[in-house]
Design a protein around this nucleic acid. Sequence first.
DNA 1: ATTACTAAAAAACGAGTAA
DNA 2: TTTACTCGTTTTTTAGTAA
Lengths: 225, 225
Amino acid sequence: MNRRVLRTYLIDLLKLGAGEKMIRTPTTHLSVVFGVSQQSASRILNELAKEDYIFKEFRDGNIWVILTEKGMREVEEYMKYVVDAYEHPGTIVMEGYVESGMGEGAYYISKRRYQIQFKDTLGFYPYPGTLNVRLKDPYYISQNRFLRRLPGYKIKGFRTKERIFGGAKVFKALVEDKIEAGVVYAERSIHGFDVVEVISPVYLREALNLKDGDKVRVSVLLNAD
Amino acid sequence: MNRRVLRTYLIDLLKLGAGEKMIRTPTTHLSVVFGVSQQSASRILNELAKEDYIFKEFRDGNIWVILTEKGMREVEEYMKYVVDAYEHPGTIVMEGYVESGMGEGAYYISKRRYQIQFKDTLGFYPYPGTLNVRLKDPYYISQNRFLRRLPGYKIKGFRTKERIFGGAKVFKALVEDKIEAGVVYAERSIHGFDVVEVISPVYLREALNLKDGDKVRVSVLLNAD
DNA sequence: ATTACTAAAAAACGAGTAA
DNA sequence: TTTACTCGTTTTTTAGTAA
């Protein structure tokens, strides 16, 4: 049974109160809550316990359960996702903190072959430089990991006499909900999932008066044609 | 594929922006969003469309989808449920409006054989009368439907020389988050899922100064030992 | 590039039942 | 009453592939 559906059963257990204290949960009762047979309810509890989402104990003829730390984290992340899907449909919102890059972003972005492709896909020639945004909230990191798996616009690599310039993937975005921008994932990225590289037609640090460590919001537009 | 898991895919589509306008969703892309194969993504879309949760169209080589009204309702109800599970664990909260019953509630509740059982299960002898609360919000109605399927405490029926008194099921509850109460479901109830019958050791109308039509909150405690 | 069919494998399910 | 095993059935999944 996969995580996707296990999560939904975790929510049910949370609703019954298993997030706070051990509760008595005869599988015969759970079967009506889960909408499955008693046998399946039993199996589901065992799978949840095996995955360490719940702690399960047999006491005087009954099963008692409580969500584990891992189970609570799972449920909280899932709730955030559901609410987020409703409140921010079509966009992936991430908040993080401005960070100084190595300055090599500027070098890459300024290459004419890249510039042309950015204009074609995003609609603007980017200012030569990237704004690195470091994510701290685990939820935003998971969102970034998710985003990086999506297709986006393909930026093709190329080679000059001297060296090879790798390909990338880019998404339309907004910074601080107002400034047109793009989020770039280099194919051979040096960053982990906790860093987002942002480009824009304007020099963002100036336009938004940003200093290292300032909080900034990046909203990726998933359906910007 | 059951409602439980279809809902989770609906959330994903909502996140992609399919709640607002038609979006292009190649099954090859969806497969990474859903975490399944391309073939399954295709099948899932077809099932969602068959259940009328989404409208799906094939246009110049791509699939475009948008959530239907039914899909949006489903997603909204599910979100409420998830948030509710997190914010009100272990209780089922329902809000409704005070209504006049036929007065027969009082007749039943006052029967000694019932009174004793209420004292045993709820811990109090109920005031002879019930407060009928009519639910309007569809979410509360669905919660009530759900609750009515749970076991609760069994109240046994009995017979006198004159007639038969049916069995019931009772849950511990709080009215307005403060007054000790019980929610009763008669086995042969005359009410639909939009009415909750509340009993209490005190005369609720007086204690809370309630008149017909007043809004009242009933919180059923699922784990009150 | 797509979508979605077929066929075969894998996973999930519940009836029956023992403990 | 419980839980959870076995086992036969159904459902779900994906690889291969045609269109």
